[in-house]
Design a protein around this nucleic acid. Structure first.
Lengths: 213, 213
DNA sequence: CCTCGGTTAGTCAAGTTTGACTAGTAGCTC
DNA sequence: GAGCTACTAGTCAAACTTGACTAACCGAGG
């Protein structure tokens, strides 16, 4: 699974009704083009695909209000709503060192009730710990890790990353328990979308030096 | 860039001459199917593609010695050799939170002279630090990170991961400086390939509980 | 009033990735 | 010695991803 479906579904859902370019801009505002495969082609492809699968409903719309070709507006359907929450929950608990999925899930975390978000994050830590145990038990030869030679460094990297991830997740849990952020059903939500016409401070046009990694 | 080209090129190179199934088995032995996209289809595709591009030379070979359809053996060419080292060096210094590429690079680290490996790893840390600085400077609104709401947690995650990665890299540098492992030109190398007929202790058949992440 | 660059909103073909499928051989068993 | 299973070695279509390209419109300058 890639992060694109969750990102696109979530973006359309927050808007209520959105066209491709809007989704593209929102994801850019989030910085998603930096940490995920949210390229224009992927976004438009995902929109069409999910419309075909009934997760989104496509309205054919007249010429755009602000230049450019006519555009198609999408709205999330009920199956789409279900799929969104399914993806969100799954992404939150799964540990598979794909930072893009995890990041996308954090972005939509507040769409859940606080209690459920906390429970999912705790489950995430439990899974990381289980994964760590299984890996260190299974992937080490009987005669000790030295047998692996430098290949053992790869496993070392995984384990180090897993520990770091668990620690970060625990930090987030602590902040949430202390009341940080506004979750579903807790009043005025924080919305990470751009209003129509609002300029995007993180647009791609402004090239950052970190881009040439 | 994905990790598959580096993995496949490196595996063929270590064998001298290898067919697809052999590469597939080696990568499984490395655990690469757990942390990269080294699926059979991708491997065979990469072999054909790189043969077409002149990085590998394909020998048409008679029926297999051990059951199954006839197989094609590949050998690395001189351009392939160059490409391998180019990919390896690039993967070592680049920071883009794609664990698969980094893992693949660590697996071939010892193909370089120790001094160069150390220099590349130090460059890696410098880039991570630069990236961190740029991100924290650019992606925070003028009125403080609180403006980002929970979206700021995504950036927090990136930065946390970058720090953890830099720390791990420094640990590896320390071990290498202390003389760990055998590098190019330092005598009998450690070879992470399976001898013909040797059984694979980490074969996919043996399902691990961690697989259902 | 016309044309030129910038922005908006996308399309498209080429390449990659995936999961499911195929097909040959060997050994075992009844 | 027929059928079954397991393993070897790979193919294939469908889906996804990517980077480059296109087309419509707007406003400014000449």
């Amino acid at each position: 699974m890639s992060a694109i479906r969750l990102l696109v579904l979530g973006a359309v859902r927050q808007h209520g009704r959105a066209h491709g370019y809007q989704v593209r801009n929102d994801l850019e505002y989030w910085g998603a083009h930096e940490w995920s495969n949210a390229k224009p082609g992927s976004i438009y492809h995902a929109l069409k695909q999910m419309a075909k699968q009934g997760l989104l409903h496509a309205h054919e719309i007249a010429p755009s209000t602000a230049g450019g070709p006519p555009r198609v507006e999408y709205e999330i359907t009920e199956p789409g709503e279900d799929e969104f929450f399914r993806l969100l929950r799954e992404s939150l608990v799964s540990y598979d060192q794909k930072m893009d999925i995890q990041s996308a899930a954090i972005g939509f975390l507040v769409e859940l009730p606080r209690a459920e978000a906390l429970e999912l994050l705790r489950e995430r830590i439990r899974r990381i710990v289980r994964w760590r145990t299984a890996v260190t038990e299974h992937y080490v030869p009987e005669d000790g890790p030295a047998q692996l030679g430098h290949i053992g460094e790869i496993m070392n990297l995984w384990v180090h990353t897993a520990d770091s991830d668990a620690a970060w997740t625990q930090g987030l849990i602590d902040r949430l328990e202390a009341g940080a952020y506004t979750f579903a059903g807790e009043g005025e939500p924080f919305v990470g979308v751009l209003a129509e016409g609002q300029e995007n401070p993180y647009a791609t046009a402004e090239r950052h030096p970190e881009d040439d990694r």
